[in-house]
Simulated assay, not measured.
Amino acid sequence: MASRDAGLAILGAGIFAKEAHLPALAKLGSTVPVVKAVYSRSEKSAQDLSTAAAVTLHLDPPPSVYHDGDEASSLDALLARSDISAVLVILPITIQPSIVVKALAAGKHVLSEKPVAPDTVSGRKLINTYLSEYKPKGLIWRVAENWEAEPGYRAAAEVVHSGKIGKIVFFTARVINHIDKDSKWYKTPWRTVPDYQGGFLLDGGVHTAAALRTILPRGLTHLSGFASLNKDYLAPHDTIHTISKAGSHFHGTVEMTFASPTKSKAVADGITITGTDGWVSIAIVSPAAGSDAPVIRTTITTVERDEDSLKEIEKQEVTEEPMQGVAREIESFFAALAGKDDGLGLGDPENALQDVAFIEAALNSDGQVIDLQKLVDLEA
């Protein structure tokens, strides 16, 4: 159980802070520290988050409000508080790296939202700074990539890694999204005019990269692909198609767009891993009646061969896991702060950098083969 005296602060008051992080903290209850402060660039958004936190987490008094424009209530003032030991950073992509360093410099443990940085160069610089200056001081920094923490994806990984479907031959991943100007995600000001590569493809695409990284038995090493812009308001890019491989072991395709013309989908989203003895298909589906949490459905199909009759017998099983990755990543973070290793390996910034490298390579390839390892090994 985490110390309730070692307070927590939330930096960033956007949609995901309210709709994902607050419910996750509520679910974890007394196992995590009390939220004692919130910060946003504007006083109104910080106040709104404080009010929401007070309701969702049953806090009285509500978290203190910090914002830009008032030195006494600035981010520096928040980070100077001795009763706050850790922060959740849920800020725009280009701002996060500097805030992560600021929080670490103030002696706070940090859990920052994905992606780790807007590009591989700044990501490598941030990681190197942490490793050289702050990790030796005992400070913990993790990147909150909730898809790698999802029990559904981790269960699928166990199936694949165990050899149940044989030696992996190929994989496919497909994400088809329809983003219009009325979308709550599009209306976020920093997404409307993104000053980072890929737009929604970076912000949302790293999830798919993380899921593949979690499920596949080997890391991807090379990628070739094409990127395009099909809706001007989703600049700089909204669609990528790639083929990638894990050395000489297996290869696969990734199709991703945020520019579907319709909300309905001609083909279903999901990831399929095919082996010599079967396949695993993983998809996010609507929640069951009475639940508001989407579900990760895993379908496992295997082939058993009858040596006498030479017949092949297919067997299929289906499992479902409610999505709860945000709660799991937060829980794992605070376990690490308490000196406990849960063995999940969540939040490693090096892994999060691999996810950024995948999207960056897809955006820049233009048909050329890109060595993914060279991207993540790049010295800042």
Results as ranks from 00 to 15, higher is better:
195 D>T: 15
195 D>W: 00
211 A>E: 13
180 D>G: 12
228 S>P: 01
231 K>Y: 04
212 L>V: 11
183 S>M: 08
217 P>I: 04
202 L>D: 07
216 L>D: 04
175 V>N: 12
231 K>D: 06
189 P>K: 08
195 D>R: 10
207 H>W: 07
215 I>P: 00
194 P>A: 09
230 N>D: 11
209 A>P: 09
216 L>Y: 02
235 A>D: 00
212 L>G: 03
198 G>Q: 04
205 G>E: 05
208 T>S: 05
234 L>H: 02
217 P>T: 04
238 D>V: 12
180 D>H: 09
228 S>R: 13
233 Y>M: 07
207 H>F: 09
199 G>T: 11
188 T>Q: 14
207 H>V: 10
189 P>I: 04
180 D>T: 14
212 L>P: 06
232 D>R: 08
215 I>C: 00
230 N>Q: 13
233 Y>I: 11
232 D>K: 13
181 K>N: 05
207 H>D: 13
234 L>P: 05
200 F>V: 13
172 T>I: 10
202 L>K: 03
208 T>V: 15
190 W>T: 12
183 S>F: 05
233 Y>E: 05
207 H>Q: 06
208 T>G: 00
197 Q>H: 04
182 D>G: 15
227 A>M: 00
192 T>K: 12
237 H>K: 15
211 A>D: 04
209 A>D: 05
208 T>M: 13
221 T>A: 05
181 K>S: 10
